[in-house]
Design a protein around this nucleic acid. Structure first.
Length: 298
DNA sequence: AAGTACGTCAACCGCAACTCA
DNA sequence: ATGAGTTGCGGTTGACGTACT
């Protein structure tokens, strides 16, 4: 493990890319696709490691990149997504077509954090800065009070096949994540040990709770666009990521004709969330965990 | 004009997870 | 089951430009 094997090779260039290098890489990938990144530099005639080539392509050369400054709408979306996802920049970027995780991370660190602080909002917790720290950290927290970087503390799941941001594994990490989550929302709720942990007097939290209990998230509104074989126990069920954003921001809660099952509707058909084509895939196992956490069955 | 502080951004680094022999 | 090779992610760094003193 550790350092990429190609980085051991001698005479590899580092630092900024020259226009000539960009041209070589662009020409090669346009003609052949990237394939195995480790072989790209050799085949493209570049004195770079594959990792560097990949990064350059993803962050700069990719044809579908959107250039220019972020719009206010994009910034707002990033803030909302960060409140839910923490520092999972790649997942945030997936909701902003044409933007890269690196770009969003830089924007967050250099600009948005500052703006939020100026508004009296803690960029880590998304709560007012004046709020006592004790209220931000649950008594069962295994994290220190100073590590007030909630969702960003959640261990990332690098399973690239499902992009699932829920922790499937340990009680300790789930508890830490739950303790650090914004608005007392329990990030440990997918862990059986924390079932029923959504407890709050905050009206916003209640909305969250209602939303999280909505039929959509629990399977009622989930369409299986990826695998039509619903009898398969391992098939993936996509949930549009936009439905994880706080509902009061983008959705209105209405009831169906039957009056029994509330459904969430997007308030703006042209919102970028709608434009985002990427979907987060959940396995049945994930959904079952959610159901268990909420005391419901699928 | 020169020096310093600050902000932005591209790129690197280290790590974890995945793939495959 | 194991380990080397590969990929992707988030944190961090350093170069560069601009504002300020």
């Amino acid at each position: 493990m550790g350092r990429h094997s190609c980085c051991y090779k001698q005479k590899l260039r580092k630092g900024l890319w020259s226009p000539e290098e960009d041209e070589k890489l662009l020409n090669y990938i346009t003609k052949h696709g990237h394939g195995c990144w480790s072989s790209v530099p050799k085949l493209a005639g570049l004195q770079r490691c594959g990792k560097s080539c990949r990064l350059r392509w993803i962050n700069y050369l990719r044809p579908d990149l959107k250039r220019g400054p972020f719009s206010q709408q994009e910034e707002n979306l990033i803030i909302e997504l960060h409140a839910v996802l923490g520092n999972r920049w790649s997942q945030i970027a997936a909701q902003l077509p044409g933007r890269t995780d690196n770009e969003i991370k830089n924007l967050w660190n250099s600009c948005i954090k500052k703006k939020l602080r100026q508004k009296g909002i803690d960029p880590n917790t998304h709560k007012p800065l004046s709020e006592p720290l004790q209220q931000q950290v649950s008594p069962s927290s295994t994290t220190t009070a100073s590590s007030s970087s909630p969702p960003s503390n959640i261990p990332r799941n690098n399973n690239n096949n499902n992009n699932n941001f829920f922790d499937h594994n340990t009680n300790s990490t789930a508890a830490a994540a739950a303790a650090a989550a914004p608005n007392n929302f329990s990030w440990g709720l997918v862990n059986e040990s924390t079932v029923g942990s959504i407890k709050s007097d905050d009206p916003e939290d209640i909305k969250w709770s209602e939303y999280l209990h909505s039929p959509f998230l629990l399977g009622g509104g989930i369409s299986n666009t990826n695998n039509q074989n619903s009898s398969s126990s391992s098939h993936l069920q996509p949930i549009l990521y936009s439905n994880i954003v706080k509902p009061e921001s983008h959705f209105s809660n209405t009831t169906t004709a039957t009056g029994s099952n509330p459904t969430w509707h997007h308030q703006n058909d042209h919102h970028q969330l709608q434009a985002a084509s990427s979907e987060i895939m959940y396995t049945n196992k994930d959904l079952q965990r959610l159901a268990v956490a909420f005391g419901q069955t699928l």
